[in-house]
Design a binder for these strands. Structure first.
Lengths: 119, 119
DNA sequence: TTAACATTTGAACGATTGCTCAAGTGTTGA
DNA sequence: TCAACACTTGAGCAATCGTTCAAATGTTAA
């Protein structure tokens, strides 16, 4: 009764006050999920390659397939994911679909992450 | 014979020259993988919450469990992953392990990604 | 010593992922 | 109109992921 716990399971929160203060400042559930989704979509070598290629040039699905050595279908699936998360956009020209980056933040993310992996 | 293809499968690379130029500028396999690994580790709501909490304060495993409503074990598994990727570090004080961020780039990544999700 | 505790670890599980394959859509040029 | 083409889509499958549970490690205090 006296003890301040997080009820769910009997975790003995060492510093309940600190925990409460931090919890209050954390963004809400939906923001955290959106953030994780954005990172997750970049968390795959194929998609990183696609994004980095599009940082250099506008490319069609076929180009990206050739570039990565993967099937056109595989690339198309990945592009849909990148499209849904608003990381890439495309323009149609006849049968072709030319893809490019949709957001300047993506290049920043890649840039900063590169710095991290290079220690 | 005359046609320049990317041999692997018979992909009709629309602009072989452009593809070759881009391919040459892309970082090598290992760098791409390391980059993807970094994003992937941030691509989960639980780990995003852990990282954002550690941006605000140094916390022990127990605190993080209380904060997220997950088991201590689950948090410990996730912290190991974050540790392996050098995103967090910890100091021992008796039985406790106090975790904090290991790299200023992480906060930048969170920052930029927040800007992206807020359009 | 021992018991209690904070944390870590390994096995196991259902859920999700990234690919392939086959079939589909829509555009072009013969 | 029709075949060829660029791309998209859905089903299916092996591999990976995130959690739980049980057991282990290591520290503290009695």
């Amino acid at each position: 009764m006296a003890e301040l716990k997080t009820d769910v399971c009997s975790v003995t929160a060492v510093d309940a006050e600190k925990v409460a203060a931090v919890q209050q400042k954390l963004p809400q559930e939906s923001a955290v999920r959106a953030l994780a989704e954005t990172f997750k979509v970049l968390g795959d070598p194929t998609r990183v390659r696609i994004v980095m290629a599009l940082m250099l040039d506008e490319l069609c699905v076929c180009d990206l397939a050739a570039l990565t050595g993967l099937s056109v279908s595989a690339i198309s699936h990945q592009l849909r994911m990148l499209r849904n998360l608003k990381l890439v956009k495309y323009r149609r020209k006849g049968k072709m679909a030319y893809y490019s980056l949709d957001d300047e933040h993506i290049e920043q993310l890649i840039q900063v992450a590169m710095e991290h992996v290079h220690e």
